[in-house]
């Protein structure tokens, strides 16, 4: 419901042209102060000096970025060699988010396709079924997943009782558990845009392909997929971006070994590390990464729209 309507909306009329400044003013003020200004302030904080146990001292410093990229030895007095600790965490996050995105695509595409090819009157019901879990508290969903997957949890109980396995599967605190959690968190974001794209797809193109001796697989791969590609890319972005900065799934399902960016940042503010400038710097780096991805995506979409004419 939310993801499906994420367009700028080109249809405009000008009934309230004279009043638009006043109509938009509250949104501008609130978002300027509570959305844009905070990001600017975060950028400033990332260049300040840390205060122990939280907060900052208003002195300019590169220390946060230096800590992120440079390894200066045990006592911090050596030259800069590349620091792998945080890069590894970022890389793991990207990898985990990517795996979760692929998992969502593998399950989400057939699901979206199946729903979009149901009779028109039952489609909203299917969409409703897929979106209900999204409306349930993310924390509760993640906790439920944790409960289900525990070594002594209902899933293992069930699998052992039907004799499929002899000893419990260790799923919790693995990479896979995190991927499963992320998949579970953001699946509707994958399904909805693909569904919207397939619903608009003109199936006589598939019929034409079949008529010209294409197999079903070829038809899917060479005719349908290119046509619904923008929906697929939108779905992937909508799953990948929030997964990248997610905190709950890695924290509750991944355990200490599977630390991701979200946890790294959280620790700077809520946990023991207490290094605000470093947390701000890590957030800035994450934000830049996301903005680059969104920019590439926006360009792709613009190109696709141009190609369509």
């Amino acid at each position: 419901m939310a993801a499906g309507a994420a367009s700028g909306g080109s249809a405009t009329t000008d009934t309230y042209k004279e009043a638009r400044t006043w109509l938009l003013m509250p949104a501008w003020v609130v978002l300027l102060f509570l959305s844009l200004a905070p990001v600017a302030m975060m950028l400033i904080y990332s260049f300040l000096t840390k205060e122990f146990r939280g907060g900052v001292i208003w002195e300019f410093s590169f220390a946060a970025y230096d800590q992120f990229f440079c390894d200066r030895g045990l006592f911090g007095d050596e030259g800069c060699t590349f620091e792998w600790t945080y890069m590894t965490i970022f890389w793991r996050s990207i990898w985990q988010a990517g795996a979760a995105t692929l998992l969502s695509l593998a399950i989400g595409f057939p699901t979206a396709y199946f729903i979009a090819t149901r009779p028109e009157n039952v489609r909203p019901l299917w969409v409703f079924l897929i979106t209900i879990p999204y409306w349930v508290n993310l924390l509760i969903r993640t906790v439920s997943m944790k409960f289900l997957l525990r070594d002594k949890g209902p899933l293992n109980d069930f699998l052992m009782s039907i004799g499929l396995i002899d000893s419990p599967l260790h799923i919790i605190n693995t990479n896979f558990a995190v991927q499963l959690g992320l998949f579970y968190s953001y699946l509707p974001f994958m399904v909805l845009p693909i569904y919207a794209a397939v619903e608009r797809y003109n199936f006589s193109l598939s019929e034409a392909a079949a008529d010209l001796y294409a197999s079903k697989f070829t038809t899917l791969w060479r005719i349908l997929l290119p046509a619904v590609k923008p929906g697929v890319i939108a779905g992937c972005i909508l799953v990948f971006v929030p997964s990248l900065g997610s905190f709950l799934a890695p924290d509750l399902l991944g355990g200490a070994k599977n630390f991701m960016i979200g946890s790294l940042i959280e620790e700077q503010f809520k946990g023991n590390a207490g290094n605000w400038p470093f947390g701000a710097a890590a957030s800035m780096i994450l934000l830049s990464l996301v903005l680059v991805i969104l920019l590439i995506f926006a360009r792709q979409q613009a190109k696709a729209e141009k190609a369509e004419g």
Partner: peptide, 17 residues
């Protein structure tokens, strides 16, 4: 904007603000 920025970044930024 709040939809595009990862939630944890919004959280950090708001706290800092």
């Amino acid at each position: 904007l709040p939809l595009m920025v990862p939630e944890i970044v919004t959280a950090v930024a708001t706290l800092i603000f």
